[in-house]
C-alpha cells in the first residue's frame, strides 16, 4: 500500500529519511527538520491532503523535542506520520502554513505549550494561558503540582485555612 511512497521518498531524500510501517494503515517517516516542508508538500500532491494535527513530544532525556505531523489520505485511507527532532535548547521549526493554512493555530498552540518557535507563522501570541510567566507548561521539567500548590492552594495564597472568621460572619452579617 505504501510502496510507491517508500520508493519515492527514498529517491527524493536518500539517506536523510527513514520509513517504517507502524501499522497496516500507518507509515512513519523520520527526517531532518529542513526536509519536512518539502516532504509534506509532496505528500499533499500524493493525495495526503488532510493535515489532521501536529503534536509535540518532549524527549527530555535526549534533550530533544519531536514534532509529529499527521497526514491522511481519503483515497488511500491511511495515515502518514512525519516525525522530526529539534534541539531542546533552541527549538525552532519552519512554519508549514504555506502548505496548510490551518496549521497556524496548531503551531501557535505548540509555541505556547512547549516554547517551540515557528518562524513564518504570523501570530504566535498566547492562545489558552492567562498571564503566563513560567516555563511552557507541557514541558517535562515544568512541575504542575508545585505550580498549583504555590499559586492556588490556600497556603500559596497566604491563608492558613479558609478564614473561619468569614464563615462566622455569614451568620452575623445577614441583616443591616
Amino acid at each position: 500500500m505504501y510502496d510507491h511512497i517508500f520508493k519515492r521518498a527514498q529517491s527524493l531524500h536518500g539517506d536523510k529519511i527513514t520509513c517504517e510501517k507502524k501499522h497496516p494503515q500507518q507509515l512513519e517517516i523520520k527526517t531532518d527538520r529542513h526536509y519536512v516542508m518539502n516532504l509534506l508538500s509532496w505528500l499533499k500532491t500524493e493525495s495526503y491532503v488532510h493535515l489532521a494535527f501536529i503534536s509535540c513530544i518532549d524527549w527530555i532525556e535526549e534533550n530533544q523535542f519531536e514534532l509529529v505531523y499527521h497526514v491522511y489520505s481519503y483515497e488511500e485511507k491511511n495515515h502518514i506520520l512525519v516525525k522530526t527532532r529539534l534541539d531542546r535548547d533552541r527549538p525552532w521549526m519552519h512554519s508549514i502554513i504555506d502548505v496548510w493554512g490551518h496549521a497556524q493555530p496548531y503551531e501557535q498552540e505548540i509555541h505556547e505549550m512547549f516554547g517551540v518557535y515557528f518562524p513564518g507563522n504570523p501570530d504566535l501570541s498566547g492562545l489558552f494561558l492567562h498571564n503566563w510567566k513560567d516555563l511552557p507548561p507541557m514541558r517535562k521539567d515544568f512541575n504542575p503540582k508545585d505550580y498549583s500548590l504555590a499559586l492556588y492552594s490556600l497556603k500559596g495564597m497566604g491563608h492558613e485555612a479558609l478564614d473561619m472568621d468569614f464563615i462566622q460572619e455569614i451568620t452575623e452579617l445577614e441583616v443591616e
Binding site: 533552541r90 525552532w92 516554547g115 518557535y117 498571564n131 510567566k133 513560567d134 516555563l135 505550580y147 504555590a150
Partner: peptide, 21 residues
C-alpha cells in the same frame, strides 16, 4: 489574574526577538 512575576521558574524566550528562518 494580575500576577507580575513567575511562580516557579521564570521563562526567558530564546526567540523573543522573532528572528526569521
Amino acid at each position: 489574574l494580575n500576577r507580575q512575576s513567575a511562580v516557579l521558574t521564570p521563562y526567558v524566550d530564546p526567540f523573543a526577538s522573532m528572528p526569521t528562518a
